[in-house]
């Protein structure tokens, strides 16, 4: 098979603009339904759990691990939501926890790498790549990225506070 034939077979016929807008809106709609179904119950659950000793207890258990990445122990709950479900679930857990900007960034980075592992692992393995190996890679990469960001952020803050002490810059 020649190069052009392969390309033609791969690319679908081009739909007109109104059809594309419709496709986009309907995809957006179904994503929205998914977001509400996952976020609302989780957000409410976490807010209610904050009133009980359970979340504190969970936080204390995971504090040593999460601390490595500069995160509070409670964030572990958000990671479970991200790994098993998706980013929206994780967001719904993160917001009621009132994290600092650095912690939100850290969650965004690490969860951006490793989320929805069950579904996406399946997709990656259907392409013929080793799904299990790649899922493991994602967890390792997420940790590496977390350590990297923590280091960089620390350097940045040190540099910023050092720059503030320079004459004429404050």
């Amino acid at each position: 098979m020649s190069e052009t034939e392969t390309d033609a077979a791969v690319e679908e016929s081009i739909p007109d603009i109104p059809t594309r807008i419709r496709t986009g809106l309907s995809a957006g709609f179904w994503t929205s339904v998914k977001i509400i179904k996952v976020s609302v119950p989780l957000y409410v659950a976490v807010t209610l759990l904050k009133e009980t000793p359970f979340l504190d207890l969970l936080g204390k258990v995971f504090a040593p691990v999460m601390g490595i990445f500069g995160l509070p122990g409670e964030a572990a709950f958000a990671f479970v939501a991200a790994f098993l479900l998706n980013i929206y679930a994780a967001i719904a857990v993160i917001v009621p926890l009132n994290l600092t900007p650095f912690q939100v960034t850290q969650c965004g980075l690490m969860m951006g790498v490793a989320h929805n592992l069950v579904v996406e692992g399946g997709v990656l393995s259907t392409t013929g790549a080793r799904g299990g190996v790649l899922t493991l890679c994602r967890l390792v990469i997420a940790c590496a990225a977390g350590l990297l960001l923590r280091g960089l952020w620390g350097l940045w803050e040190t540099a910023a506070s050092w720059a503030m002490t320079l004459p004429g810059l404050s």
Binding site: T23, G28, T31, I36
Partner: peptide, 20 residues
């Protein structure tokens, strides 16, 4: 929770539509 969902939806729907 509803406010958060609304924010997310306001990002996702235009983004997906634009991409299409």
């Amino acid at each position: 929770a509803l406010k958060l969902s609304a924010k997310l939806i306001l990002i996702i729907v235009p983004l997906v539509t634009l991409f299409e």
